[in-house]
Design a binder for these strands. Structure first.
Length: 605
RNA sequence: CAGAGAGUAGCUCAGCUUGGUAGAGCGUCUGGUUUGGGACCAGAAGGUCGCAGGUUCAAAUCCUGUCUCUCUGACCA
């Protein structure tokens, strides 16, 4: 836990100045008993029900006061840690001319994900999904000497991506709030190098998500369309997350499924056949499970042969073979064959003779191609696989017998080309097995290298008066996604349970019978005391019955809760509990209210 | 992008098959009784039935087109 305000004895989640005090009746918190029927995930349901967000369009939301308060708290933590790590905040436009994307070809590579529009003059513009191009272009004109490096600049801004399918409230939006940072270097190593900044960002991200009170993992990840060499994702651990993470309990190795390596697996071509190769008619069976059932086996008894094409080529084919119940990992295929690959376009693959849906490794005998096989696809003596002929499969396929020529000519490459899964051998600890869990990606850091600087001509003269491409890194945090990921992992059946640091308010005062003499005065007094100690306070001053107010309090999820009523005032007491505590509030001395709140901060945060 | 579904009151939905005065619950407002985990009584407001055409004496309902939203998959810094 990082302590920014070390000179203060206040809890770091509290405000360093007086906290604010707001009355429920004077802000907008439209809670509802029922969620919209289309809300499926708990963060979506609770954010709508508790009055944090309202939908405007597909993947577009209003951030109501509660959500905005939390978003500002997350942003504040991000700013503090980024600034502390030596980055400078600035702001780029969200709107930009499409021409900026020409040099890096991301107007094409990013595809439909890029929001584009046309102005009155017919000029095409884009709404920024990330800002590598804008900042690289900026740097081309703004940085002229090697002496100005390293640099690290960041912004917090709305980003736009035309997601094919926005979903789950703020988890996958078309407009969302993101912090993006870009660093510039002339070398990899040393204090001014990319690696040093990357490590600092890794640490800053660890600080940020720790301070936000999140249960998260930093995992090795694929660089994806942004490109670059190394990358880590920061994932909120959450059972219903969209991403799968694999980790080794012994070595601590943790990686996204896209990236996770699999440890050593024994294999051999030399397995004696046990069955004749037999052809079967298998028409109209979509899906490997149906075919397997028809052939009297299961998916694990079949070979799946996926046809790829080397990117940028007309007809350099690659067949990747994995066991039927495994998934091919495109990145691993790329690494295995040494060039980029893409799924073969069906039409052209068919023209080249591939019976798509019925392809087998035996295609190598008739067509020029690269064959890569996963070790697990070699283990059995007898496989069911395609017959390289429409509507037909074979059973009894055996590598040593049916692929003898290819094996003899050493034409088969064996490599780890599938997604790792739970139970696979760990790549970092002998004998250990990988375990799987789910997560929501909230941060991603990349070593970009010179991909953008080369494409856009960002170079400077170095000390030796030689022109040198600038080395870049980029670092993103999904601010609005962090908010919903937090709820996704911290709620119960009654609503949200905020960690102190990013809750819209630290404390809520529920006033019972606010119209009775002196009751609101008492609430205001307590609020002032709490505020003086840095607590942001929400007073539920609504003239409503206690039941709905308790229900709303649970829904909204403010961490600390006081209950003031005529009864307790008379007794010189007050009720107090944390949102996360089970059961009813406990009665404490009114005089000890602030003390209790401060003590509770220590135990829950 | 493929498949499926939905647009009727602020929210959740019924009505549509078989065309004939626009409905319920929750919420809101007024008055009253209440006041410790989403109360009760009485009353009220609130909807060009997504939009545009068409059929018909008559369309929320039938037909055509269109827009929007959602779900599953594909895709996804």
């Amino acid at each position: 836990m990082s302590t920014i305000n070390a000179q203060s004895d206040r809890h770091t989640a509290l405000s360093t100045t007086n906290g604010c005090v707001h009355n429920w009746s004077q802000t907008l918190i439209p809670t509802t008993r029922e969620a919209p029927s289309d809300a499926e995930t708990s963060s979506h349901i609770y954010m709508v029900r508790a009055g944090y967000i309202r939908q405007v369009g597909a993947g577009i939301y209003n951030y109501l006061p509660l959500a905005w308060r939390s978003l500002k708290k997350i942003s504040a933590i991000v700013r503090e840690e980024m600034d502390a790590a030596g980055a400078s905040e600035f702001l780029m436009p969200a709107l930009m001319p499409i021409e900026l994307y020409k040099d890096t070809k991301r107007d094409v590579d990013y595809g439909n994900l890029l929001f584009t529009l046309e102005d009155r003059h017919g000029r095409r513009s884009a709404l920024g999904p990330t800002h590598e191009e804008v900042i690289t272009d900026l740097m081309c004109g703004a940085v002229t000497s090697y002496k100005q490096f390293p640099l690290n600049l960041y912004q917090i801004q709305s980003k736009f991506r035309d997601e094919a399918r926005p979903r789950a409230g703020l988890l996958r939006c078309r407009e969302f709030i993101m912090k993006d940072a870009y660093s510039f270097h002339l070398e990899l190593e040393g204090d001014a190098g990319l690696n040093h900044t990357y490590d600092k960002m890794y640490q800053a991200y660890t600080n940020i998500f720790t301070r936000c009170g999140l249960d998260f993992s930093a995992v090795e990840a694929e660089a994806g369309p942004i490109g670059g060499s190394a990358s880590h994702e920061f994932m909120v651990n959450c059972a219903n997350g969209e991403d799968t993470i694999l980790y080794c309990p012994e070595s601590g190795y943790t990686a996204n499924v896209e990236k996770a390596e699999i440890g050593q697996r024994d294999w051999s071509f030399d397995v004696a056949p046990t069955e004749e190769l037999t052809k079967h008619h298998t028409p109209g069976m979509p899906g490997i499970d149906l075919v397997a059932e028809h052939l009297g086996t299961n998916a694990a008894g079949m070979l799946k042969s996926i046809v790829f094409r080397r990117t940028g080529t007309e007809n350099k084919w690659v067949i990747a073979v994995v066991r039927g119940d495994h998934d091919v990992n495109e990145g691993k295929v790329r690494d295995a064959v040494g060039t980029g690959v893409e799924m073969a376009p069906e039409k052209e693959a068919k023209e080249a003779g591939f019976a798509i849906g019925y392809v087998s490794p035996r295609m190598i005998d008739s067509t020029k191609l690269t064959l890569v096989v996963d070790p697990d696809a070699l283990a059995a003596a007898s496989w069911a696989t395609g017959a390289d002929e429409n509507d037909h499969h074979v059973t009894g396929f055996n590598w040593s017998r049916d692929m003898a020529d290819a094996i003899a000519q050493d034409k088969i490459k064996v490599a780890d080309i599938r997604n790792a899964q739970a139970g696979d051998p760990s790549p970092r600890a002998q004998g250990a097995k990988l375990e799987a869990r789910r997560g929501i990606e909230v941060g991603h850091i990349f070593k970009l290298g010179t991909k953008y600087s080369k494409a856009m001509g960002l170079s400077v003269l170095n000390k030796d008066q030689k022109k040198q491409d600038v080395i870049m890194g980029c670092y993103g945090i999904g601010v609005s996604r962090t908010l919903s990921a937090c709820i996704e992992s911290a709620h119960d059946d009654n609503g949200i349970i905020w960690p102190l640091a990013i809750a819209p308010y630290h404390a809520q005062i529920i006033v019972i019978k606010p119209k009775d003499d002196g009751v609101m005065d008492e609430a205001d007094k307590l609020a002032a005391e709490l505020s003086a100690h840095g607590f942001d306070v929400l007073i539920d001053d609504r003239d409503d019955r206690p039941g709905p107010k308790f229900k709303d309090a649970d829904l909204v999820g403010i961490p600390l809760r006081f209950i003031i009523s005529p009864k307790t005032i008379e007794a010189g007491q007050i009720e107090f509990k944390a949102r996360a505590d089970e059961g009813k509030a406990e009665l404490i001395d009114r005089a000890k209210a602030v003390e209790a709140a401060l003590a509770k901060c220590e135990s829950i945060a």
